[in-house]
């Protein structure tokens, strides 16, 4: 940080900061450290071309990578009460929200859309890790409920992409209550015989993993994703031991019977297309039989 950043007012900084090269011209892989041309990185679906590390992916790119011909309609996400507890730590919660909204351009940590994947219409919801760590508060909970309700109403399968550190502490008990609330929404789909498919992405932990992230009819994980209830740091503090290599990663969960498959992002669309089409076949047959 230069003297300029300390001295000049934030609003002026913005003007002064305009650089010739954009910040994101290059991407440095967080795993192998190789530099990748950012455009190529995005075109490769945020997967490192050198080591295949799957980096975190924002919702818009996710939708584009899945829906046929990049064709989809965003669902309106319900408005929720802002800062219900008037929470304040080192920062005020509304200030944290404002920053997250400015950096992501989104209202909160979830987006949902309807479109076709391999010809099968479906509802897809995506959590955005770049919005306050994808944390689950009332907005995320309501978003999932709204998406599930839409799937239920339209008789469609529901695909949920999880990415979250867990419950949003700044909403206290109200964030915890999203665990049972989202579960109720999924039960609605289950009662109607509609498939609920979970794609676990990096990271999925805490109250999110202990609710809708683990209740899928079919559980898919992206390679190398951290999937846990208690984060590794908490466990290390409790048992005071180093954790084994690969602990709480997708492949570990696969070995322990917690997910059906670990699927490379490049194969995900095709895999989802098969799963969606197969799992919906019965519903259509049932409908035709009546």
């Amino acid at each position: 940080m230069s003297w300029l950043t300390n001295y000049v007012k934030p609003k002026l900084q913005k003007v002064l900061k305009s650089k010739d090269t954009p910040d994101n011209l290059w991407h440095k892989c967080k795993s192998c450290g190789q530099m990748i041309f950012h455009k190529e990185f995005v075109a490769n679906l945020y997967v490192c071309a050198h080591c295949e590390t799957h980096d975190r992916m924002p919702p818009a790119e996710r939708f584009s990578s899945l829906f046929d011909n990049d064709n989809y309609d965003l669902l309106d996400m319900p408005k929720v009460k802002q800062d219900p507890l008037k929470f304040r730590d080192s920062k005020k919660y509304p200030d944290r929200l404002k920053i997250a909204r400015n950096t992501t351009g989104d209202e909160d940590a979830i987006k949902a859309a309807v479109g076709k994947i391999g010809g099968q219409e479906c509802v897809v919801a995506v959590q955005n890790f770049f919005f306050m760590g994808g944390s689950m508060g009332m907005a995320v909970g309501e978003g999932i409920i709204a998406a599930a309700r839409h799937a239920h109403k339209m008789n469609l399968p529901f695909v949920m992409f999880t990415a979250s550190g867990g419950a949003r502490m700044q909403e206290g008990i109200l964030s915890l209550m999203q665990m049972p609330r989202t579960t109720v929404a999924l039960q609605m789909l289950r009662d109607a015989g509609l498939p609920y498919i979970v794609v676990l992405t990096d990271p999925t932990s805490g109250g999110v993993s202990a609710s809708y992230a683990m209740l899928g009819d079919i559980q898919i994980a992206e390679p190398g994703a951290m999937i846990a209830f208690s984060g590794p740091r908490v466990i290390e503090q409790t048992i005071r031991e180093k954790l084994p290599e690969g602990f709480q990663r997708s492949e570990y969960l696969y070995d322990h019977g917690m997910v059906d498959m670990v699927t490379h992002r490049h194969d995900l669309k095709d895999r989802l297309a098969s799963v969606l089409s197969l799992s919906m076949a019965g519903a259509y047959r049932r409908k035709a039989a009546v």
Binding site: L186, S230, I235
Partner: peptide
Amino acid sequence: AYPGVGAEERGQAEAIARSTD
């Protein structure tokens, strides 16, 4: 819920989710 290696290995998150369910 207990934060331990064995608990994670045997699916702590899934067990809690299923119990709420």
